[in-house]
């Protein structure tokens, strides 16, 4: 388990060892949705906003 600074509030966000690129994590401090954009080393970015054509 690594920690990465939240791109929004700078709080430490735990990134599980089994995290995959394109998975979404949520910052416990600010509730921001964060996308895993790298795993070695772990990198987080703000997740894209939900679009109108997203879904099932």
């Amino acid at each position: 388990m690594s920690t990465v600074a939240c791109p929004d509030c700078a709080a430490s966000v735990p990134v599980p060892g089994e995290a995959l690129v394109s998975e979404i994590l949520v910052c416990r401090e600010c509730d921001s949705e964060l996308e895993v954009v790298g795993v070695d080393p772990p990198l987080l970015a703000r997740a894209p906003e939900v679009e109108e054509d997203w879904g099932e």
């Binding site: 995959l20 690129v21 394109s22 998975e23 979404i24 996308e35």
Partner: peptide
């Protein structure tokens, strides 16, 4: 997939 949800993780 551009987003790995629980379903995509299960498929992988």
């Amino acid at each position: 997939a551009s987003r790995i949800r629980a379903e995509e993780r299960a498929l992988l």
